[in-house]
Amino acid sequence: MTVEDEIEIMGQRLNDKIKKIFGRSLHIREVDAGSCNACEVEVNALSNPIYDIERFGIHIVASPRHADMLLVTGPVTRNMELALLKTYNATPSPKLVAAMGSCACNGGIFGDTYASGGGVDRFIPVDVYIPGCPPRPQAVIFGIMVALDKLPQKIKKIEAKP
């Protein structure tokens, strides 16, 4: 199967899911919390004409205030901690957080040190972990799908609150 075939199949499933849950496109804000920049290479690849994820209802937005989901890369450096928290707080609820790449999942090769925070879930709640260094674009799409399944529950919780 070619990459194009893979993307076509996954993309259609993704599209159906997004339509069902949102009735519009899913808005994602990417946050680099100290990555090595290779994860960004792959996030950017998602927008190239081969993957072109926008056609499946995924829109990468410029501000966290417009986002349904944060896609976070990097181990969360000491110097990015505050910026990540601010971005998280600026994102309206219900929100999803995907930790993309080994660094974001658990610190990866950078670990837990004076400069590296050891993973995103030490700082903000994470809904889905996308392993890989960097994850292939297909893995990112799959991760987003898994995260989407968690949203209905989150909405219910918010609605249940008086």
């Binding site: 680099d32 090595c36 450096t77 110097n79 990015m80 090769i109 040190t113 400069a115």
Partner: peptide, 22 residues
Amino acid sequence: FYTHKGVEKLFENISLDKAVFL
């Protein structure tokens, strides 16, 4: 330096073969 990850210090704390990955 927002993305400072302590790379040079890390090099001093990992084995030579792993250092290539770093």
